[in-house]
Design a protein around this nucleic acid. Structure first.
Length: 627
RNA sequence: GCACCCAUAGCUCAGAUGGAUAGAGCAGUCGCCUUCUAAGCGACAUGUCGCAGGUUCGAGUCCUGCUGGGUGCACCA
């Protein structure tokens, strides 16, 4: 099925034959044959510049070599002919066969047999999620879907730091101000307000002096796991927001459980055996267990990184290292319970001191979705894997680093009030989609109705469009790019957006429905009647595996988003295509056309609808029933 | 000071492994609904790919040095 791979093999075989006599064996191995799409105005469908690579070695011009390759190439199935175009070797596909092949294949990935853990969200359990978290959640969720689509098994973890200062602050504030949640608003918002109030008061030195012992006491209780139910209330409220976005998880990892697991000791024991980790008895770090990072992170002013403080407590980096070791299955010991049932019905598990063992962790690759400010500690975690003698795991320790989100040009700051909650953003996104939907229905008066079932459907469609727009805005660019959240661009419904792609998908599905009513059936397709217009669509559709390869290699969903735009653009162009006398020449349903042609076009459109929907689903975006 | 990230059209951004004339969207001008959804399509216009060197048959892509912007460099959490 994969034409490019077949071409690559065929060309590689010819190179072998050509070079073996001229240069001796295995020279060809140095040349990676690249098969690329030809530029739109060049002859052929695929091409390779491989002749350039051989020119010097064979002492011939690339033009000669390309011609020679064209003559000697054994054509793989689906390729009609090969032709030298200057120094390039180009290939022409067998159009009807190629389209038929693409239309008949679902492009399902073969299982890679590798487990990938994606950790994302991991928000402090003390306040509501805001726009800044949105990028993390959406990126992580999409990345997990990309890996799943590429044939990996995926486990999504959400780390809950229930022993941290932030959680302590909020719980202390609640007790200190004697406030009770009245159940009216969302719990995480309510608690967040207390947190902000506490920090305003903490600016006052006298208040701070009085409060610190109390906050410390809360921290001790948190570490002992005594306030777990309190923290769970916040976590459940936060998860509601994520569920509203269509994001679900496999496992909540509670810091208080990690503390009790003994992982830290085990991890430090592993590191002790390395020459890079040792205990210092004098100097600035006397009494600390440290790592010398100079070999792995060159250029630091002070390459000594503290893992265990002189008082015996662990730094965050040490905890991160221990957790990473666990994710790769270096040690066992956690127990798990069912936490809750998620909207899709899938059970969310949580680590627990009173649960039972289950087969979590043991990953072959670990993706930590964390903003770029933490790239230094993440590099240390990666290095620690190698230091402990796990080179492969170190290479598979991936920090999916993304740049921070600005809000209308300003740095997000809850304490300064420069923030918008994720719940508010989601609500606004759906609201905007809803009004656009109504406006559009006003134009097509036939589809608008006040039936309850119609209203329900409109609501669902507005949700899919609004959330789609929002998610897509977070995904379409490289994660390393700083994005500025502007309402109008983040929730835009035209241009390079999800609604643009959704619109194309709905359009294709509408054609399917109408074609069925007209009695057409893709089973009666005569693919020989199709033109290059359909071939172009088929080639676009066939690119998905290549795109997934790029996305998993670069650990970013954005190539998939860009691909979705290209697919939609291709289909919209096809849909509106006109012949030289300005008449539509790509209609599916047209009784004047041969039945075999109508059915063949239908087959392509059906396949395109599936491709558009499937690609959007990889990004966690659903297609509405109408727009 | 040191390290990492970013710099491509007026604005926001795509451009895997170096390969054929660098592409979208937004904004601008002009066209296209008696045609399967106009949230669409087509056309026109817009470039010193930050600067300067280097490697290569070939560089937006790789290397070096600059410039400008962002982030990080605690026994904090």
């Amino acid at each position: 099925m994969d034409v490019k791979a077949a071409l690559k093999d065929a060309v590689t075989r010819v190179l072998e034959q050509m070079q073996a006599p001229a240069l001796g064996s295995d020279t060809y191995a140095r040349f990676e044959v690249i098969i690329q799409d030809t530029p739109p105005d060049k002859p052929g469908d695929y091409g390779t510049p491989v002749a350039f690579l051989l020119a010097k070695a064979l002492k011939q011009s690339p033009v000669q070599i390309a011609a020679q390759l064209a003559a000697q190439l054994e054509l793989p199935a689906g390729i009609a002919r090969a032709e030298a175009v200057g120094p390039y070797l180009n290939f022409f596909v067998d159009r009807a066969g190629y389209i038929k092949d693409v239309v008949g294949n679902a492009l399902e990935s073969v299982s890679k047999g590798i487990k990938v853990i994606v950790e994302h969200t991991s928000v402090n359990p003390n306040k509501e999620l805001h726009v800044g978290h949105l990028r993390n959640v959406v990126l992580g969720d999409a990345m997990a879907r990309v890996y799943r689509a590429a044939g990996y098994s995926v486990e999504v973890q959400n780390y809950i730091d229930d022993t941290g200062r932030q959680a302590a602050d909020s719980l202390f504030a609640q007790a200190h101000y004697g406030e009770q949640w009245d159940g009216s608003g969302k719990y995480d918002h309510w608690l967040g307000e207390l947190y902000v109030r506490l920090h305003q008061d903490l600016a006052n030195e006298a208040f701070k002096q009085g409060a610190e012992p109390g906050i410390n006491a809360v921290m001790h209780r948190l570490e002992a796991g005594e306030l777990r139910t309190e923290v769970e209330k916040v976590v459940r409220a936060q998860l509601e927001t994520c569920y509203a976005l269509g994001v679900e998880y496999d496992l909540l990892v509670w810091e208080s459980d990690i503390v009790g697991s003994g992982f830290l000791d085990k991890a430090m024991k592993l590191l002790e055996q390395s020459e890079f980790c040792f205990r210092l008895s004098e100097g600035k770090y006397a009494g600390c267990f440290v790592m010398d990072t100079s070999r792995f992170l060159p250029g630091l002013e002070d390459p000594i990184l503290v893992l265990l403080r002189s008082n015996g407590t662990a730094t965050y980096t040490a905890k991160d290292i221990a957790q990473q070791f666990w994710k790769f299955g270096l040690f066992e010991g956690l127990d798990y319970t069912e936490f809750e049932s998620q909207p899709s019905g899938k059970t969310l598990y949580a680590t627990s001191s009173s649960g039972s063992p289950r087969s979590f962790a043991h990953a072959g690759r670990v993706i930590n979705v964390i903003d770029s400010r933490q790239s230094h500690p993440q590099a240390v975690v990666k290095a620690a894997m190698a230091i402990a003698g796990h080179q492969g795991e170190s290479e598979n320790s991936i920090h999916l680093s993304y740049n921070t989100v600005l809000l209308e040009g300003q740095t997000i700051s809850g304490r300064k009030g420069i923030t918008v909650s994720m719940d508010e953003v989601i609500e606004e996104a759906i609201l905007r989609a809803s009004s656009a939907l109504l406006e559009n229905q006003g134009k097509n008066s036939e589809s608008s109705s006040l039936e309850p079932s119609q209203l329900e459907q409109d609501e669902e469609n507005a949700r899919r469009i609004g959330l789609g727009a929002l998610r897509f805005a977070m995904l379409k660019n490289e994660p390393s790019r700083q994005i500025d959240f502007h309402w109008d661009s983040a929730l835009a419904l035209v241009g390079d957006t999800a609604p643009y792609v959704q619109y194309a998908a709905v359009r294709a599905k509408t054609i399917q429905k109408r074609a069925a009513l007209a009695g057409l059936d893709s089973a009666r397709a005569d693919f020989t009647l199709l033109s290059d217009l359909e071939l172009t669509l088929a080639k676009d559709i066939a690119r998905l595996p290549e795109i997934l390869g790029i996305a998993t290699r670069d650990n970013s969903p954005h190539p998939v988003a860009q691909y979705a735009l290209e697919l939609a653009n291709g289909f919209n162009g096809y849909y509106n295509h006109k012949d030289s006398s300005n008449k539509p020449d790509t209609k599916v349903i047209d009784p004047e056309l041969p039945d075999g042609l109508q059915c063949a076009r239908l087959a392509v459109v059906e396949r395109m609808a599936a491709a558009l929907e499937g690609t959007l689903n990889i990004l966690g975006i659903e297609v509405p029933s109408e727009m």
